[in-house]
Design a protein around this nucleic acid. Structure first.
Lengths: 238, 238
DNA sequence: CGCCGAATTGACACGGTTCAATTGAGGTGG
DNA sequence: CCACCTCAATTGAACCGTGTCAATTCGGCG
């Protein structure tokens, strides 16, 4: 169930989109992005983010909260393809690439806006260069991440997988202007991380403990701190 | 090192492409495909298939032999993203999706042809409907396969992974007109399968033995036979 | 205070890896 | 035609990374 929310809250949040657009954002683009908040909607955890209108879901941008693309197996097992953080676009290019159309579920309370205006604007690159760049690059970025995920799952140990994912999330959140210097929000349960990394919850927990014991990371109240980025990058190349 | 090869051999081989185009192939399309053999080249096992011209590799179609998209880790581990069989297109949409640009290496002696004429023809869907359909669908099919691979690696047991991959390969080869009724060529070593499925060679070997012991498959001289497709599909959903 | 989901812990079983050696099959040269 | 070579397939045994099961503790919230 989507509910409209206050303009004020969202206005503060669209800056993750501006951040993702990079340094050079024209005035037109800034106005375009700020206009997005009109379509803001919130969804509770567990909500499918790409349902309406059925059959032709509209693309959206996540302003706040986390989500994931996932597949559920008949026997209840779950594989998460990708974690989605504020600033990420979903449902791009309807009917095109399957990853963009995968079941997308919110993991926390999530605020999203309609991304259609961005798609439209992207068709005039001269007027909206940064938007066009982002829209064009998104499917490739997503696919690249999926490839990294395959390597993680296929050839990394549990320990390496966790480190590699944390480094990736750190980079992505920094690019969205969230978190800084190796400290960033991680508002998901260990079960979610386990389902992304193909591990059991118990083992996920033990790996995190090990990393804390080794003083490589620090966790608390929905945030992680990477204490020794160099050491971590040695474990799982950048 | 690519070498031109006899026209006659290739003429017999382009039918995998026609097969992939489906039932309705116009005369123009048939002529187009048959003209591809002019650019035929062979490569030995281990050859990189997307090298020339450097920086802007031309898209190609595999006429015979198998290849794979892979990534090598600094410590020698290898993860195979996808096995490529005759009729598959590689290097599509240069500069676009990263999967299409991944390192593509032949696993057997391989014959390929330049796929550029197909890309060009695909821009006139009315004249080349089947070609346009195939070219447009290929990136999505590849990505879909990559997603299935993530699920295999993340949430399937070794046994399930092997079965799932064999079923996939059976379907794909049937679509290319190779193999029939659950019997198809599998001209790769167990090490290749292991590197695709994230297993050790030894374990790969043991799983295959188990499947033979259970009379679910049969192997020999580079071919597999799926003896009980139903049972196999029960193990790893279609 | 009591509740509930999440995090944590311990014991144990098992899947999968590693190492090391052997067998088998195809190819080559003598 | 056979000896030999090489790479792939196979085997055995030991090891250990991960999963499973079942409690228990923790932390936020009504």
């Amino acid at each position: 169930m989507n509910l409209s929310i206050g303009r004020k809250v969202c206005a503060a949040r669209v800056d993750v989109v501006l951040k993702r657009l990079g340094g050079r954002v024209s005035g037109d683009e800034r106005a375009l992005v700020q206009g997005l908040v009109a379509s803001a909607a919130e969804a509770g955890p567990g909500a499918e983010l790409l349902t309406e209108p059925a059959g032709a879901p509209s693309p959206r941008v996540i302003l706040s909260g986390w989500a994931c693309r996932q597949r559920l197996l008949p026997d209840g097992r779950r594989q998460i393809f990708d974690l989605l953080v504020p600033g990420d676009m979903i449902g791009l290019a309807p009917g095109s690439l399957p990853l963009g159309q995968a079941s997308t579920v919110s993991l926390t309370r999530t605020a999203t806006v309609d991304a259609s205006p961005l798609i439209v604007a992207a068709q005039r690159p001269s007027a909206f260069p940064a938007v066009a760049r982002l829209v064009a690059a998104t499917p490739a970025i997503d696919e690249e991440r999926l490839m990294n995920h395959v390597v993680r799952l296929g050839r990394f140990t549990a320990y390496e997988r966790v480190v590699h994912l944390l480094l990736e999330l750190g980079d992505r959140l920094a690019a969205a202007g969230l978190g800084d210097k190796g400290r960033f929000p991680l508002p998901v349960t260990q079960e979610v991380l386990a389902d992304a990394l193909g591990l059991s919850v118990v083992h996920m927990n033990r790996i995190l403990q090990q990393l804390r014991r080794e003083s490589l990371i620090q966790m608390g109240s929905g945030h992680v701190t990477l204490l020794a980025r160099e050491a971590l990058e040695t474990v799982a190349g950048p």
